Computed example of a mutant assay.
Amino acid sequence: MNTDLDNISIGAFAKAAGIGVETIRFYQRKRLLPEPQRPPGGIRRYGRADVERVKFIKSAQRLGFSLDEVAQLLTLEDGTHCSEAAAFAARHLADVRARLKDLKRMETVLSRLVAQCSSHQGTIACPLIASLRSR
Protein backbone atom coordinates (compact mmCIF):
# COMPACT_ATOMS: atom_id res chain seq x y z
CA MET A 1 0.00 0.00 0.00
CA ASN A 2 1.23 3.47 -0.89
CA THR A 3 1.56 5.53 2.31
CA ASP A 4 1.97 8.85 0.51
CA LEU A 5 -1.40 10.58 1.01
CA ASP A 6 -0.90 12.68 -2.11
CA ASN A 7 -1.30 9.83 -4.60
CA ILE A 8 -3.50 7.04 -3.24
CA SER A 9 -6.06 4.59 -4.59
CA ILE A 10 -9.69 4.72 -3.54
CA GLY A 11 -9.10 1.81 -1.14
CA ALA A 12 -6.20 3.57 0.57
CA PHE A 13 -8.22 6.78 0.60
CA ALA A 14 -11.13 5.02 2.31
CA LYS A 15 -8.82 3.53 4.92
CA ALA A 16 -7.06 6.86 5.57
CA ALA A 17 -10.41 8.63 5.95
CA GLY A 18 -11.92 5.88 8.11
CA ILE A 19 -14.85 5.18 5.79
CA GLY A 20 -15.83 2.63 3.16
CA VAL A 21 -15.26 2.85 -0.56
CA GLU A 22 -19.01 2.99 -1.15
CA THR A 23 -19.24 6.03 1.15
CA ILE A 24 -16.67 7.78 -1.02
CA ARG A 25 -18.71 6.99 -4.13
CA PHE A 26 -21.88 8.15 -2.37
CA TYR A 27 -20.24 11.47 -1.44
CA GLN A 28 -19.13 11.86 -5.05
CA ARG A 29 -22.67 11.28 -6.32
CA LYS A 30 -23.90 13.86 -3.78
CA ARG A 31 -21.19 16.25 -5.07
CA LEU A 32 -19.66 16.55 -1.61
CA LEU A 33 -16.41 15.14 -2.90
CA PRO A 34 -14.92 15.69 -6.34
CA GLU A 35 -14.23 12.66 -8.51
CA PRO A 36 -10.72 12.83 -9.91
CA GLN A 37 -10.09 12.29 -13.60
CA ARG A 38 -9.13 8.79 -14.64
CA PRO A 39 -5.89 8.91 -16.58
CA PRO A 40 -5.91 6.86 -19.81
CA GLY A 41 -5.41 3.23 -18.83
CA GLY A 42 -5.01 4.16 -15.17
CA ILE A 43 -6.95 4.43 -11.96
CA ARG A 44 -8.21 7.49 -10.18
CA ARG A 45 -5.87 8.83 -7.54
CA TYR A 46 -6.78 10.77 -4.43
CA GLY A 47 -4.81 13.04 -2.17
CA ARG A 48 -4.46 14.53 1.28
CA ALA A 49 -7.03 17.25 0.49
CA ASP A 50 -9.61 14.56 -0.27
CA VAL A 51 -8.94 12.83 3.06
CA GLU A 52 -9.24 16.16 4.90
CA ARG A 53 -12.50 16.94 3.08
CA VAL A 54 -14.02 13.63 4.17
CA LYS A 55 -12.89 14.27 7.74
CA PHE A 56 -14.60 17.69 7.54
CA ILE A 57 -17.80 16.01 6.31
CA LYS A 58 -17.72 13.41 9.08
CA SER A 59 -17.04 16.06 11.75
CA ALA A 60 -20.01 18.12 10.56
CA GLN A 61 -22.22 15.03 10.56
CA ARG A 62 -21.20 14.26 14.15
CA LEU A 63 -22.52 17.72 15.06
CA GLY A 64 -25.86 16.78 13.53
CA PHE A 65 -25.59 18.58 10.21
CA SER A 66 -27.40 16.85 7.34
CA LEU A 67 -25.51 16.17 4.11
CA ASP A 68 -27.33 19.08 2.46
CA GLU A 69 -26.15 21.33 5.30
CA VAL A 70 -22.64 19.90 5.00
CA ALA A 71 -22.69 20.85 1.32
CA GLN A 72 -23.52 24.42 2.34
CA LEU A 73 -20.75 24.43 4.95
CA LEU A 74 -18.29 23.20 2.33
CA THR A 75 -18.94 26.37 0.34
CA LEU A 76 -17.74 28.32 3.40
CA GLU A 77 -14.80 26.00 4.11
CA ASP A 78 -12.02 28.37 3.06
CA GLY A 79 -12.33 30.22 6.38
CA THR A 80 -13.08 33.66 4.95
CA HIS A 81 -16.82 33.40 5.62
CA CYS A 82 -16.72 33.17 9.41
CA SER A 83 -19.80 35.35 9.99
CA GLU A 84 -21.83 33.30 7.50
CA ALA A 85 -20.65 30.06 9.10
CA ALA A 86 -21.51 31.41 12.55
CA ALA A 87 -25.02 32.40 11.44
CA PHE A 88 -25.47 28.99 9.86
CA ALA A 89 -24.30 27.27 13.06
CA ALA A 90 -26.54 29.50 15.19
CA ARG A 91 -29.59 28.37 13.19
CA HIS A 92 -28.52 24.77 13.62
CA LEU A 93 -27.99 25.32 17.36
CA ALA A 94 -31.52 26.72 17.67
CA ASP A 95 -32.83 23.60 15.94
CA VAL A 96 -30.79 21.34 18.26
CA ARG A 97 -32.14 23.18 21.30
CA ALA A 98 -35.71 22.82 20.04
CA ARG A 99 -35.17 19.08 19.51
CA LEU A 100 -33.68 18.79 23.01
CA LYS A 101 -36.75 20.50 24.44
CA ASP A 102 -38.99 18.04 22.56
CA LEU A 103 -36.86 15.12 23.77
CA LYS A 104 -37.12 16.34 27.37
CA ARG A 105 -40.89 16.54 27.05
CA MET A 106 -41.00 13.01 25.59
CA GLU A 107 -38.76 11.76 28.40
CA THR A 108 -41.10 13.24 31.03
CA VAL A 109 -44.22 11.71 29.48
CA LEU A 110 -42.62 8.31 28.90
CA SER A 111 -41.13 8.25 32.38
CA ARG A 112 -44.56 8.91 33.88
CA LEU A 113 -46.20 6.23 31.70
CA VAL A 114 -43.52 3.64 32.52
CA ALA A 115 -44.00 4.38 36.22
CA GLN A 116 -47.77 3.92 35.81
CA CYS A 117 -47.18 0.60 34.03
CA SER A 118 -44.91 -0.54 36.86
CA SER A 119 -47.54 0.21 39.48
CA HIS A 120 -50.39 -1.15 37.35
CA GLN A 121 -52.40 -3.94 38.98
CA GLY A 122 -55.54 -5.82 38.21
CA THR A 123 -57.40 -6.18 34.94
CA ILE A 124 -57.29 -2.50 33.98
CA ALA A 125 -55.88 -1.77 30.52
CA CYS A 126 -52.19 -0.97 30.29
CA PRO A 127 -51.72 2.76 31.08
CA LEU A 128 -49.17 3.17 28.28
CA ILE A 129 -51.37 1.58 25.61
CA ALA A 130 -54.44 3.42 26.89
CA SER A 131 -52.55 6.72 26.75
CA LEU A 132 -51.39 6.12 23.21
CA ARG A 133 -54.90 5.23 22.09
CA SER A 134 -56.35 8.42 23.54
CA ARG A 135 -53.83 10.75 21.90
Rank of each mutant, 00 (worst) to 15 (best):
L73T: 05
G122I: 04
Q61A: 02
E77C: 03
T123R: 10
G64W: 01
S83I: 06
E107Q: 15
N7H: 15
R48I: 02
V21Q: 14
K101Y: 06
E52Y: 07
A115H: 15
Q61V: 03
A130S: 11
D6I: 08
R48F: 04
T108I: 12
A16E: 00
T80V: 10
V21S: 13
F65P: 01
L110W: 09
H81G: 01
F65H: 02
L67F: 01
F13Q: 13
L93I: 12
L32I: 06
I19L: 02
G11E: 07
E84Q: 14
D95Q: 11
K104R: 15
Q116Y: 08
C117W: 02
S134H: 09
K58N: 04
A17V: 02
C117F: 04
A14L: 02
K55H: 14
I10S: 14
L63F: 08
I129R: 00
R133Y: 08
R53N: 05
P34H: 14
G122K: 05
R99M: 05
S111W: 04
I10M: 13
Q116H: 11
M106K: 15
R97T: 04
Y46V: 08
G47S: 12
D68E: 10
N7C: 15
M106E: 07
L5K: 13
E84A: 14
F88I: 03
R45L: 10
D78M: 01
I10N: 14
A90S: 09
A60W: 01
V51K: 02
L63D: 05
R97S: 05
A125M: 00
L67Y: 01
